[in-house]
Amino acid sequence: MLRLQPFELVQPESIGEVLQLLSTHAEHVRIISGGTDLVPNLKLGSIKGDVLVSLQRVDELKNLKEADTQLVIGAGVSLHTIATSKLVQGTVPVLADAVGKIASPQIRNMGTLGGNLCLDTRCRYINQSEFIRSSFGGCLKSDGDRCHVVPGGSLCVAALSSDSVPVLIALGADVDIIGPEGERTIPVEELYTKDGVAHIALSSDEVVVRARVPIPAAQTRITYRKWAVRKSIDFPLVSVAVRIDHIKGSPDILEDGRVVVGVLGPQPKILRLSSLQGQPINEEMAHKVAGIVSRRCTPLANVPYSEDYRKLRLAVEVKRAIRSLFI
C-alpha cells in the first residue's frame, strides 16, 4: 500500500495554540483538517509535510450559525454538515447543493469547509505518484522546472477544483483569517493567487477560521453546475456558479449578476454582468452570457478532457444555469 512518509502530528485544541505552532515550525509545516486532499497528496509525495498541525480538535472552528443576514460557518465544519444542515438548506440552499456535490459521502463526512476553500490545485501532471512524475521529469509544482500544460510557461496553471469556492464567491462571501497580527476579513476571491504552486494568498502562519456567507436577498438567485465524468467521487471538470439579481419588483429585469468559473487555472474567474443591467432575463440573455463566458474563459489541458470540449460545455452549463433561474 502507498505509505505516508513519517511526519510529526500535532493536535492543538485552540486557535491560539495553532498560531503558536505555525510560527514556531519552519519548513514543510502543513495544516491538516479533514485530510481528504492533503493525505492523498502526501501519499503521492506531490507535497511534503514534516509537521502537520491538525485542526481536528479545535472546537471553536466547528460552529455553524446564523448571525443577522449572514451564515457564519467555521472552517472546521464538515462538508456533510453543510450539505445536510436545515439552516443552510433553508437560508442558502445553493451552498448546501454545491457542497453536496463534492466527492463522495465519506469525503464529505471527513472534509471541512476550510479544507475545501484551501483545496490544493489539481493537474494531470501533478496528481501522480512520485514514480510517474519522475518518468517525465516532474513539473513546476513538483520536482521539475517546466510546465507540460503551457510549454515554456513559468507560472503553474494547476486548476482550482473546489466545488464550494465558485458558489461562495457568487454569494459574495468573505473569509476570516487569523494570524499573528490578529484577524482580518477578505472576500473569498482574494484568497487565490495566479500561481498554482502557492495559490492560497496566506502567509504560512495564517489560518482560515470561518466563512461569512451573506444570506441572499429575495431578488437574488444563484445556482451551481458541475460536470464530471461520474456522478459521485469525482472532482469537477467544469464548474460554474451563476448569480442573477433582478430589479426589485421586476423579476424579469436584470439588476446585476455574476458568473464564477472554476477549473480553469489556480484562480476562479469572475465575470460581472453589470453591463447587462436593465435587460430582460430570458433565453436571449442566457445565450448572451454563455457567449461572454465562452469568450473570456480558456480551459487548459491541466485536467482530463479536451479544452475545446470543456469550453463548449461551460457555455452550455451557463446557458442552462440561467434558464433554470428564470423558469
Binding site: M1, L9, Q11, I32, G35, T36, V39, P40, K43, L52, S54, Q56, H80, P105, Q106, I107, N109, M110
Partner: peptide, 13 residues
C-alpha cells in the same frame, strides 16, 4: 457513526 475512509484518516484522529 459516520462512514469515513480509513486509508486517508490519520490513526491519531
Amino acid at each position: 457513526g459516520q462512514p469515513v475512509l480509513s486509508c486517508i484518516t490519520l490513526a491519531l484522529d
